[in-house]
Design a binder for these strands. Structure first.
Length: 310
DNA sequence: TGCGATTGCTCACTTACATCA
DNA sequence: GGTGATGTAAGTGAGCAATCG
């Protein structure tokens, strides 16, 4: 409520705008099985990295029940979920370490595996660990299961166990987004709330994007340095050419040019556009006549000096 | 068919807490 | 043990598209 929203978020994935054609290949493996298709995305436009995945946005809910609007509801919890990332995992059975709390949530049939309002602030998770070291999955589950009891107080933070994080990480490598079925199954497997799985993926995507942005920035930086070096080299080359030209003109016999013939064309360079042109063309007046007197070699002050004086 | 309301998803940004040096 | 830095789980508000009436 009192939180200020600082600016509007970037256009869907257009915020980077790096323009180097780098693409935001986030290193997400795109080899999702064909039968693993996310629900048609209703939200923001599909991010590019999502398109890297094997998902093609096909309908997933064709066989599941629908809510009163005809929108597909979650599958029944007894449905068999075929998910590669859950291979060998019985999603209806809690991991060995998590006994009591699992039964608390139990494999009962739930509409969404997500209590009403779970998608909205459900913050407070009781911190049962309270000690250093990764809390066990059981702790997490306990926190997840009785978080209604701890509501209201200060927000406690749950740290996922290494095992939980590893499973989430593996899943993320396969798909960086989850459909509701996958989310629910994963949550059940890890003894977390679907909301927690959702948040983890959300944060993980953000981290991935941030990392990619850093990589892109580094690339841009190097590109800029290269261009700067090249620019410097070209400047030097130009100076040398000018010097050579002046030396040649000075050494040439005077009678070749005669009294009225202007010296050889002088090169001038615009500091802003960096274009080099002959003085005869750049300084021609409206009538098109050639300038009466020689044009200075550098009619403009150095760009840096211009900026500093401004 | 067009339109507003609703819903559910994602995102960017932020906060609060846990952990580490 | 206190402290600042860092990592990350979670809260918040907004945008978008699908869907419905």
């Amino acid at each position: 409520m009192e939180m200020m929203v600082h600016g509007r978020r970037d256009e869907q994935y257009g915020g980077l705008g790096l323009g180097l054609g780098l693409g935001l290949s986030l290193g997400v493996a795109g080899g999702a099985a064909d039968d693993e298709q996310p629900p048609p995305r209703r939200g923001a436009a599909p991010p590019p990295q999502q398109q890297l995945c094997g998902w093609n946005g096909g309908g997933l809910f064709s066989s599941s029940s629908s809510d009163h609007r005809g929108r597909s509801a979650m599958m029944a919890c007894h449905d068999v979920i075929e998910m590669p990332f859950l291979r060998g995992i019985d999603v209806n059975r809690a991991p060995a370490a998590e006994t009591t709390t699992t039964t608390a949530r139990g494999p009962s049939c739930r509409e969404e595996d997500e209590e009403p309002g779970a998608s909205s602030p459900n913050s407070t998770l009781s911190s049962l660990s309270g000690k250093r070291g990764a809390p066990s999955a059981a702790t997490a589950a306990a926190a997840a299961s009785d978080d209604e009891d701890s509501g209201g107080g200060s927000r406690k933070k749950l740290r996922l166990s290494k095992d939980q994080a590893a499973v989430l990480e593996d899943t993320f490598k396969e798909h960086n987004t989850l459909n509701p079925k996958q989310k629910a199954a994963l949550a059940r497997q890890l003894n977390l709330k679907p909301r927690q799985v959702e948040v983890w993926f959300q944060n993980r995507r953000a981290r991935t994007k941030l990392k990619q942005t850093e990589v892109d920035c580094e690339l841009l930086k190097r590109c800029c340095e290269t261009l700067t070096d090249e620019n410097r080299r070209l400047h030097r080359e130009l100076q040398e050419l000018r010097a050579l030209k002046l030396a040649t003109a000075a050494a040439a016999p005077h009678h070749l040019y005669g009294a009225r013939v202007p010296p050889p064309t002088t090169l001038t360079m615009c500091p802003s556009c960096e274009r080099v042109a002959s003085a005869a063309t750049t300084t021609r007046n409206n009538s098109g006549a050639a300038p009466a007197r020689p044009v200075p070699t550098r009619p403009w002050p150095p760009a840096a000096a211009q900026r500093s004086s401004a």
